[in-house]
Design a protein around this nucleic acid. Structure first.
Length: 264
DNA sequence: ATACCATGAACAG
DNA sequence: TGTTCCTGGTATC
């Protein structure tokens, strides 16, 4: 399930297979067929990730925006073109080097550079981008009366953070998710940014979310079991204090937290 | 075979 | 705030 690290990883993985080459674009499933024809055979100039959005820039000026949503998934195939497994591939990209299949996206839309710019204009800074300005996100957090747990999911504040990273970053800093964001100290807001940036970067590196980091936040001996990847997210007991994990609906989604380690 | 749930977000009202 | 859309893995019958 994709948070921002997935789109950035996809750009890294897909670019060597597609960028600079003519690409056959099709829609085996059919729902992107008309749009696919408009760019079929064009050279892919650039792939770009911004938060959970991905943009493919084509030589004839079109831009394809992809948002994976909850279910969306890319599959990468090197070499020979694979069969379409179940007719569910919304967009298939085929170059001389390989094939990318996109299934189940929330958004797969053909537009212009202006459309791309409009999407980006709605987004807060993305910690995974070189051009990110942390102070913008930190300032927006500080202006909101909403619970910090809701604000961290707001893509206008910080782009790319999803349900796992928000819960885990709040845990690491001992912040209760219901605390009004503007009541977080400037230090706390800066620390959340930098922790989220680290977690997202690790997600890109590992191709999955593992927020447990013993060098930054030692786990008691014997506490972590094999396969544990989070401190509180989707857990019944806190990895640090073994107390019962609580849940609160914030930003429309369940936020796991430890009432002991994150007093509020 | 069917139900249900999930790391998301737009939209209606 | 609730509904809707997208898919697939796991649980349940």
């Amino acid at each position: 399930m994709p948070e921002g690290h997935v789109t950035h990883r996809a750009v890294r993985d897909h670019s060597p297979l597609l960028v600079g080459l003519p690409v056959s674009v099709s829609s085996p499933q059919g729902r992107f067929a008309d749009e696919a024809r408009m760019i079929d055979g064009q050279v892919l100039q650039r792939l770009e990730a911004y938060g959970k959005h991905m943009f493919a820039h084509w030589a004839n000026g079109f831009v394809v925006e992809v948002h994976l949503g909850l279910f969306g998934r890319f599959r990468v195939h090197r070499g020979e073109v694979p069969p379409d497994p179940v007719g569910q591939v919304r967009m298939r990209l085929v170059s001389a080097r390989g094939t990318i299949d996109l299934a189940g996206p929330n958004v797969c839309r053909l537009g212009s550079v202006a459309d791309r710019d409009a999407v980006v204009a709605r987004l807060g800074p993305d910690p995974l981008r070189r051009d990110a300005r942390p102070e913008v996100a930190i300032e927006r957090m500080g202006r909101s009366a909403q619970p910090i747990g809701a604000v961290l999911l707001d893509q206008r504040v910080i782009a790319g953070v999803g349900n796992v990273f928000r819960a885990e970053a709040l845990f690491v800093h001992g912040i209760h998710p219901a605390l009004p964001a503007r009541d977080c100290t400037a230090e706390q807001r800066a620390a959340l940014w930098s922790t989220l940036a680290t977690m997202l970067r690790n997600g890109v590196r590992d191709r999955r979310i593992v927020t447990i980091d013993r060098t930054r936040f030692p786990v008691p001996r014997g506490s972590a079991r094999r396969g544990d990847t989070t401190y509180v997210y989707h857990r019944t007991e806190c990895l640090i204090c073994a107390g019962e994990v609580a849940r609160l609906t914030l930003g429309g989604r369940d936020c796991w937290y430890c009432p002991t380690c994150q007093p509020g």
